[in-house]
Computed example of a mutant assay.
Amino acid sequence: MSTWIVLRESNFTRLCDTKSLLTVNDSFPRPTITVHRGDTVYVNVHNHGYYGVTIHWHGVKQSGNPWSDGPEYITQCPIEPGSNFTYMVIFSTEEGTLWWHAHSDWTHC
């Protein structure tokens, strides 16, 4: 299975306050990726944001596949603005609700 993620800065207004947020496929909160135990998913992330970013897959063991774990400068370099990276996420014995989120260099905020 494969899916696309496009990261983009978008202005969102909530409770009369407008902020620039990193959105995923033009939505906030981020979309759900539905998988089954034993699936391997290829997630192609296109970074159209302002800063380097990675995606971390919480609760996914990634045994033998650490380069797709996501912490920037630990298991991979950030996906720089204007570039993309394809994650291979292997769901072996995981089940239940797992979550994913971005890691980013917040020193630029």
Rank of each mutant, 00 (worst) to 15 (best):
Y73G: 04
S104K: 08
W99F: 15
W67P: 10
H108Q: 06
S68F: 00
D69Q: 13
S63W: 06
S83F: 07
T32A: 04
L22T: 14
S10Y: 14
N65F: 06
I79S: 01
E94K: 07
D17Q: 12
S92Y: 03
G38S: 09
T75L: 02
T13S: 13
Y42N: 00
H56L: 15
R37N: 07
P29F: 00
Y50K: 10
D26N: 09
A102L: 15
P78M: 03
L98M: 00
C109M: 10
P71T: 03
T32S: 11
D17M: 12
K61N: 13
V35Y: 01
V60P: 06
I5A: 05
S2R: 05
E95F: 10
T18S: 10
D69F: 09
S10E: 10
D26T: 02
W57K: 09
V41W: 07
P71L: 02
M1Q: 03
T54P: 10
S2Q: 13
C16V: 10
Y42S: 08
Y50F: 14
R8K: 12
K19F: 14
V43L: 05
P29D: 04
C16P: 08
D26P: 07
N47R: 00
S20T: 09
T32N: 09
T97W: 09
E94Q: 11
S83P: 00
K61T: 11
R14I: 15
S83E: 01
R14C: 09
I33M: 03
P81A: 03
M88E: 15
T13I: 12
W67F: 07
T32R: 06
R8Q: 15
S68E: 02
W57P: 08
F91G: 13
N47L: 05
T3I: 07
S2D: 15
V53H: 08
D39T: 01
P81S: 03
G52I: 01
T107G: 11
W99L: 09
T75Y: 02
H101A: 13
F91S: 09
Q76V: 02
T107Y: 12
E9P: 15
G38V: 03
M1V: 08
P78F: 06
F28D: 11
S63A: 02
Q62I: 05
H103C: 06
E95Q: 14
W100E: 11
S20K: 13
L21D: 07
T107S: 10
Y50N: 13
W57Q: 03
Y73Q: 01
L98T: 07
G52V: 04
M88Y: 13
E94T: 06
I90K: 11
C16F: 15
S104R: 11
V41T: 11
T13D: 04
I74Y: 14
K19W: 08
D39Y: 06
T54W: 04
I90R: 13
N84F: 12
K19G: 12
Y51G: 12
Q62S: 04
I74D: 04
H108L: 02
H108I: 12
H56C: 14
H56R: 15
Y51N: 11
N47W: 01
L22Y: 13
S2V: 13
P71F: 06
V60N: 04
T40G: 07
H46D: 03
T23R: 10
G52F: 01
D17G: 13
N47P: 04
S92T: 09
H58P: 01
H56Y: 13
C16T: 15
Y50Q: 08
W100N: 04
V41C: 09
S68I: 08
V24A: 03
T23H: 12
